[in-house]
Each structure stands twice: as C-alpha cells, then as structure tokens.
Design a protein around this nucleic acid. Structure first.
Lengths: 146, 146
DNA sequence: TATAATAATTTTGAAATCGAGATAATTTTA
DNA sequence: TAAAATTATCTCGATTTCAAAATTATTATA
C-alpha cells in the first residue's frame, strides 16, 4: 500500500511519545521529590557537566524561551544552586555558574537518577539499547534541523 | 566496564528526549498555527479516533491532571469542538463528545499533520522505522507499568 | 437505612512557560 | 564616526498546568 510509509511514521510517533512520557514521568517524580522541577534540574545538570554557560546557550540546549531562562535561573539563584557572572568581554552576556552547593546537590542526586533510568531501560538488552541509540540519533538529528 | 549498561541507558535517555522534542516542536507549531494548543489537539484527536470518553479517562490517556481536563474541555467546548454529555447511569460522570465541527476540524488537519510527521521521520527507511517501533514498544510498555 | 468510604468533576491559587516588547551593549554599514 | 541592525537579557501579561480542597454522587458497611 502506498501510504504504508505514513502509517508507519504515525505509529512510530505514537510509540516514541509513549516511551518518552512513560520514562519521563518517573524521572520527573524523583527530581521533584528532591525539591527541583525538571527544568531546573536540566539547567543545573548542564552547568555541572558542561561548565559555565551564557544564558543564551542554556535556552538553546534545554529548548526554553528567553523569558523562561531568566525565570529558572532566578529560581536556582534563590536556592543557592548557581550564581550569575558578568562576561568581561561582552557586557550583554551573563554566565550562569553552578555553586559548590549546586555541585553537591547534583553529586548527591545523580547516582540515584542514573540508576532509575537504567532500571526503566532494563527491558532492553545492551545490544538493543545500542540499536535504539543509533536509530534515534538518525531520527532526531535531521528533525532538529528542519 | 561494569557501568557500561548505566552509561548506555543514560545515552539512550538523551537521544530519546532529543528525538521526541525535535519532532514535537515541529508538530506543535503546525497545531498551534491551526488555532489549538497541543493538549486541545490531543483531546480532540482522542475523541475523534476513540469515540466519546468520560473526562476521567481523558486524563489517563493524555497524562493530564483532573483540574487541567476541566480547563481544556471548557476551552474546546467554547470553541464548539466538543460538547459535554451527562452519563445517565452515573450522575458523577460527564462524557466529552466531539461535535460535527470538531470532526471537520480533525478531518481538515489530519492529512497535513500525518504528512508532516512522515517528513520528519524520512531519515529512516521503512525497515528502520519497524525496528524503532519494536524497540520503543519494548522500552515504553514496561516503563509505563513501573 | 444511616454512616462512611470511594469516586468524578470542578474550583482555586500558585507555579511554569511563552511571546512580544523593552533595555542595553555590540557590530555592521554607510 | 554616526546610524542602523543585531544580539543578550529582562520585564510583563496571558496561557497552561498542577495540586489540594470543595462539591456532588455512588457504593460499601455497620
């Protein structure tokens, strides 16, 4: 049938959404139980693993509007998890930098976070995870560029 | 390495999130360009494809808090896309039913919606889509049950 | 049959997100 | 150099969402 391709794409869209939501629901619960919301966690983890970031960049990586970045960074600053740092070279730019308290938080949380994700993924073998990673890369990279 | 499994799970979580968000971003844009938000579209599509639903059930299928269902159903009702229907057997229950206008809307939109998704998925062959569907099913179903 | 427990929906107030516009700084162009 | 365009951040108002409590209806229990 000629529209089999479309039908299959729709099916893939549905299972992709379900898998993402099912896993995320659990992950978010644990994050929220630790006093942050998913966006705050995403920002903090970004700073922890990738170092200081201009506010701008954060929006691009976490997929967040500029107004929302200001809001989330405010929240994390109030909680003592990060601090703003003026860029000496370009006075329009503000860096967000994780504090020692923020680092401790991530260090405390991350093992549990990683373990939960591994558990949620345990229905796949390592081989299948590799296949899924490759397929999803092939799917996600071009879609992000459209 | 013993923690390779965890590392791989984390990697899979990241590419899954990216693929989902990249695709969804585009899909949502088209939906919003047609005057509904993604949640409203999800509810309407559910009613179109699965028939009348008690408000309750909608929340379970779309993953939405009960207060939000009331809000979204109000919105769709104001737009003439659905109507509330009292359940004769149990007066606590209200069904949501898509109207003719709602049906026309979905019929108008759906081909474009499906085509967009097919385009966004076009980096995979049909064979790869089938593999991805199977892997994501295997991943999502158990994760949903935890 | 009362009473209590459960269930479905709605209301309410707070939090999160967006988009558009404002402000300030930098870069490009004439 | 001066004006215009671009860039980064922030502010503001509106929308969407959630969580908890309120309301109404049903079912189970004493």
């Amino acid at each position: 049938m000629e529209n089999d391709s479309v039908t299959k794409s729709l099916k893939l869209f549905i299972v992709l959404s379900r898998a993402y939501k099912a896993i995320n629901e659990h992950v978010n619960k644990v994050i929220q139980a630790n006093g942050l919301n998913p966006t705050e966690f995403a920002v903090l983890e970004l700073l922890y693993h990738k170092g200081d970031q201009p506010m701008q960049q954060i929006g691009g990586k976490i997929l967040l509007a500029s107004g929302s970045i200001t809001y989330v960074v405010d929240k994390l600053e109030q909680k003592g998890m990060l601090q703003r740092l003026a860029c000496p070279k370009d006075r329009r730019v503000t860096y967000a930098q994780i504090t020692d308290e923020g680092k401790r938080f991530i260090q405390d949380i991350f093992p549990e976070h990683a373990k939960l994700i591994d558990t949620l993924m345990s229905s796949l073998t390592d081989q299948e995870k590799t296949e899924a990673i490759n397929l999803l890369k092939k799917l996600g990279l071009p879609a992000g560029r459209f």
